[in-house]
């Protein structure tokens, strides 16, 4: 039962594996990037559920607080703001590269790119 109780982490693991599997198994570069995105999102979910406190509210201290409020740990959330920025930047660079690869090779399938590279060198 304990294992089921942490179902949110099972979700994280599942998403991570889906993401990583996509990166490994798909030749299409955009699909690879989608896989990477899923992979990163899983980590964000991981941090967020780590910061969740049962019954806690948003970590904003209201007027007249007496110190007994229960609120979520704000730090993981803050960290994830940065991680989201990093993820977006990575995707942006990745997609820009895909566009240029498409211009240069006429394809975005990795096996085909590998074949062209080998023929070229």
């Amino acid at each position: 039962m304990e294992a089921l109780g942490i179902w949110n982490y099972w979700g994280v693991v599942l998403l991570m594996m889906i993401g990583l599997y996509t990166v490994i198994a798909r030749d299409h570069l955009v699909k690879k990037l989608i896989g990477l995105g899923i992979f990163q999102v899983a980590v964000i979910l991981f941090y967020v559920s780590m910061g969740k406190v049962t019954g806690g509210t948003a970590p904003i201290i209201p007027e007249g607080a007496d110190g007994s409020e229960v609120y979520s740990n704000p730090l993981p959330h803050v960290l994830m703001l940065t991680a989201i920025v990093v993820g977006v930047a990575t995707l942006a660079v990745g997609l820009a590269l895909v566009i240029r690869i498409r211009e240069a090779y006429g394809t975005v399938e990795e096996d085909e790119l590998q074949r062209q590279n080998r023929a070229g060198s």
């Binding site: 980590v43 780590m50 690869i101 790119l113």
Partner: peptide
């Protein structure tokens, strides 16, 4: 043009590496 595919491969591996680091940091935290 191979520079593009090289950079892309690095991007994929680098992101996986970076994310692994992030997961590890999360566990420790």
């Amino acid at each position: 043009r191979q520079a593009l595919t090289a950079a892309f491969s690095y991007l994929v591996m680098g992101t996986i590496g970076g994310t692994f680091l992030l997961v590890g940091i999360g566990f420790l935290y």
